[in-house]
Deep mutational scan, measured.
Amino acid sequence: SASLEDVKTAVLGLLVILQTKLYTLPASHATRVYEMLVSHIQLHYKHSYTLPIASSIRLQAFDFLLLLRADSLHRLGLPNKDGVVRFSPYCVCDYMEPERGSEKKTSGPLSPPTGPPGPAPAGPAVRLGSVPYSLLFRVLLQCLKQESDWKVLKLVLGRLPESLRYKVLIFTSPCSVDQLCSALCSMLSGPKTLERLRGAPEGF
């Protein structure tokens, strides 16, 4: 439990870093931090981490990651405290083949985003970082199938509809809506759902 406290501190630090690096160059920093966060949550489900502190780590990670939004130009952003989304000039939600690297070039400044813009690109060529939603999407499927803490599952179920409104997140990387529907149906009809959940409301 003591070591998990250190892990929790590290994860919180990564969330803060991602919130900053999403809007700064090099964009590969945001890509790497995002991948680290998603990989860490995957390990929770792989090794069945069920301690309360592990659940709190997942809760905080999902609470942040499910706020990711994308505009029509595929640029990622996060809402501010007033709910207004600021889109990044440097990070996009497109999935890119590994051989192309985590970044790609664009020939010049991008068109203005639909929300308040981030800082304008400084040079004639900007390297865009790929932060594909499919990585998070796979972890969300694991959550629906394996999550043991009701608070975490409730958060994910509550945030998913709003995330799905931003269709560009889903359609720019390999996210299977069929698998999502299947996971939701299995969660509702499967007898093991109630068996594994802690803290579920009576009558769920």
Rank of each mutant, 00 (worst) to 15 (best):
P191L: 08
V177A: 06
C181P: 01
D149L: 00
T114Y: 13
L110F: 12
Q42I: 08
L67H: 15
L188G: 02
K154Y: 05
C185D: 02
Y45T: 00
A2E: 13
R138I: 05
G115K: 09
L25W: 15
T24P: 01
Q42Y: 10
Q42K: 11
M36R: 04
P201Y: 09
V152Y: 00
P117N: 10
G118R: 15
A54E: 01
G108N: 13
P113A: 13
S148F: 09
E5H: 08
T20P: 01
S3P: 06
R75V: 02
S148E: 11
R75F: 06
S55T: 10
R75M: 04
G190C: 14
A27F: 08
E5C: 09
D6R: 00
H44N: 01
L78A: 09
D149S: 07
D149G: 00
G108C: 10
E162L: 09
M187H: 01
P52V: 02
R198P: 03
L76M: 12
S130D: 04
S48W: 07
V131E: 03
L184D: 01
S1Q: 10
Y90I: 09
L73E: 14
Q146R: 12
H40K: 00
C143H: 02
S182E: 13
L15M: 15
L68V: 08
V168E: 07
H47P: 01
F137E: 03
L110R: 09
W150H: 02
G13M: 00
K21L: 01
V131I: 15
R69A: 04
G158N: 13
G101C: 14
K154L: 04
I170Y: 13
A10P: 00
I17T: 06
Q146F: 13
S28D: 12
R196E: 04
L67I: 06
Y23D: 04
V7H: 01
S134Q: 05
R75L: 03
T172V: 02
S3V: 07
I41N: 00
L4W: 05
R32K: 09
F87T: 06
T24L: 11
S163K: 08
L155W: 05
L73H: 11
F171T: 15
V131Y: 03
L67R: 15
K145S: 13
T193G: 07
S39M: 09
M187F: 08
F171V: 09
P26N: 04
L144R: 00
G77N: 02
K151R: 15
G190Y: 11
D82A: 13
V156A: 03
T106Q: 12
G190D: 15
T24E: 10
L51S: 08
L144F: 06
V139K: 01
V38R: 01
E5L: 08
E99R: 13
D94I: 03
T50C: 10
L12W: 10
K192R: 09
Y49G: 01
L15V: 09
F87A: 05
P89F: 04
H74I: 02
S176W: 05
G101R: 12
L153N: 00
I170C: 06
F171E: 12
L73V: 09
K21W: 01
L14R: 01
G101W: 06
G83Q: 06
S111V: 15
G77P: 01
K105T: 13
R159N: 05
V139H: 02
P132W: 02
K21E: 01
P174I: 03
R159C: 05
Y23W: 06
D149W: 02
L67V: 08
G101F: 11
V33A: 06
A70I: 04
M96Q: 10
L43S: 15
S182V: 08
S28I: 10
